[in-house]
Design a protein around this nucleic acid. Structure first.
Lengths: 354, 354
DNA sequence: AACGATAGCGTCAACGTTGTCTGGTCCGGA
DNA sequence: TCCGGACCAGACAACGTTGACGCTATCGTT
């Protein structure tokens, strides 16, 4: 069944080594021999056995991808950024999904056994023990962490700057005339929640507005908590005229709660979310959101890892990517007088397809 | 750097083969020797080199996953189903994303080179040439296709039954009193569009209702086409009182178009989508949709593939999974008098997290 | 006492490549 | 004619593991 170099060599009437040279395009081969070998390869349908190659070269041309909570579209986009870059450089990606730190430990273990050439860790922003990552780095296998907090600069990493974008979002609301700006925050065991809260506070401070506790409620990034938090905020006297919500799922919950309370968005309450999820384009009104550069992070992570693998010098070990505010209808910043779905579509790229 | 069996053997004072036996738990080993070897393994931090093992056993314990258009959450859920099952059986998953048939050919080629033990193809329902798949099967490497059409029973496959569920959806609308039920279909180069159209027609037929061309418009599964199609349908005289939309993205576009035209959903127009996307829970009103068993399909595909790999008998080569109608507010079938986000949440599982 | 069975371990040759070293041929220049 | 070098190709030993087979005690059986 399996055609080997030996078979090709026999058919072409050359040595195994010569076939190897033709396959790898190395050394000097006469054109005539090269063609004879090439023909033998095609006639026999020979495919080099990369397992044998890996054994001797010590490289597997494979990178491991540890991805947290893979069902979130959010993190998926990181994955989408990684694969094409890897493929382009002739690397395969092997997947390992992790739900908690124990899984991470197991995942890194598997990656070591698999003899991957490098690892990308795609995390959610939990406060976690990082010692297993540092241990792994000590093995000498290159690693790049995406969206991971609490790592020192000895570990290559890519993060995005939620905080600055959050400040920008608040200032945008201020510019629109809002003075009572509330915040629905994320769970406090997530670093991202703190970033966004911090950005919110800085925005208020820069605008010279007071930061009031009664305008801040923390949810858990899930729909119901966003809904309930909004109802609580609307009950405050005086109620906020704008709400900066720490993620998009809670933001659409906020939208629904405001609307079901009989108020209009953005006229009575303006809303801004975080995440840049596809569905934020499809709400009525469409949702202003902070788009996180997830796909870009994936690409950069892949490039950084490949550079490490090939011993190329890295300009820096930590890349911070900016996040950008996408202004839509829900904050009234740029009201669309006529709703043009085609323009909306083409302006922001292609939405998901079923 | 690299610790091999040789090192372990030297340290434990046994032969390499004995170490191999301990590692693989095969053959008869005295407890004392076993422990001595075990200790040496731990002291040296030995990890078996699975590349070398693969070379000799001819198995890589890896399955290849070709996934079409990976940015769609829809297909992602198939992937989510696959990984844990594979991991459970000590298999790794290597990823290859494909955009078209040419990519598929390349992907299968790569899988052959990678010497994967099996392949799962996760397709969108395009009408495509399948000859490369049949060619691949001829190599003897097990393959399971998910959501692929036009394959005969010689190829293992998992599909879901959109058609029956579509009929069910239409009958549900009929039961609610609707007589003018329109359809926004998908692009005609996709098999899924035909399935859903067929199901729609059967539903009408079973209800004794006429199928009228003016109530059928085909979009391209993207938002703008759903929006525009809805506007056209609303202009028909008399306009439909219900619209069965072939996917969820067009369905929320439909929802927006109906609402922006000043009509109410479901009172004036009822809407049902297809896909079971997470965002359908978050619209106002919430969207009735046909949930496709994507994660289940992934699990079944993985199990089927592993059975094939291990030469276990398969009861059947083609599995058809049912799709189920999730009744929510947009069709008025089960109006929620009080909107309870917590109940909505817990009843349908966990939504995506940022 | 002789014998077979068996537990427990070792030897050796693979697996299909690539790296290193070496040998041979051919050509141009001295 | 001889020689150096460019060009080609083969022999051989790895890489780290497993499979087939073999050897040696030990023990129970006859």
């Amino acid at each position: 069944m399996a055609v080997t170099m030996r078979d090709v060599a026999a058919r072409a009437g050359v040595s195994i080594k010569t076939v190897s040279r033709v396959v790898n395009e190395q050394g000097e081969i006469s054109e005539e021999t090269r063609q004879r070998v090439q023909r033998a390869i095609e006639e026999l349908g020979y495919k080099p056995n990369i397992v044998a190659r890996s054994l001797i070269t010590g490289r597997t041309n494979t990178i491991g991808l540890l991805v947290a909570e893979i069902e979130t579209p959010f993190l998926l986009r990181v994955q989408v950024g990684i694969e094409p870059i890897a493929r382009e450089h002739n690397y395969n990606v092997i997947l390992f999904s992790v739900a908690d730190t124990a899984d991470e430990v197991k995942g890194l273990e598997v990656m070591r056994q698999q003899r991957v050439d490098g690892v990308i860790m795609n995390s959610i922003s939990l406060y976690q023990d990082n010692s297993h990552i540092l241990d792994f780095c000590r093995t000498g296998i290159p690693l790049v962490a995406v969206n991971r907090y609490g790592l020192d600069d000895s570990v290559c990493q890519i993060v995005w700057d939620d905080e600055t974008a959050s400040t920008e979002a608040v200032l945008h609301l201020v510019q629109l005339g809002h003075r009572r700006i509330a915040h629905i925050g994320g769970p406090l065991d997530r670093h991202s929640s703190h970033c966004r809260l911090q950005g919110y506070k800085k925005g208020l401070a820069q605008a010279g507005l007071p930061c009031q506790d009664r305008y801040i409620i923390h949810g858990d990034y899930l729909y119901p908590s966003g809904y309930n938090a909004t109802l609580s905020l609307l009950a405050v006297d005086p109620p906020p005229t704008a709400i900066f919500v720490a993620n998009d799922v809670m933001a659409i919950a906020c939208l629904a709660a405001v609307q079901r309370s009989g108020r209009r968005v953005p006229d009575d309450v303006a809303i801004i979310g975080v995440g840049g999820e596809a569905f934020t384009r499809y709400t009525t009104p469409t949702l202003t959101t902070i788009s996180l550069p997830t796909a870009e992070a994936g690409r950069r992570a892949a490039e950084m890892l490949l550079a490490q693998i090939n011993d190329q010098p890295l300009p820096t070990t930590k890349v911070v990517l900016p996040a950008s505010l996408i202004v839509r209808e829900s904050c009234g910043g740029q009201p669309m007088t006529t709703f043009d779905p085609v323009a909306l579509f083409t302006a922001e790229g292609r939405p998901p397809v079923t």
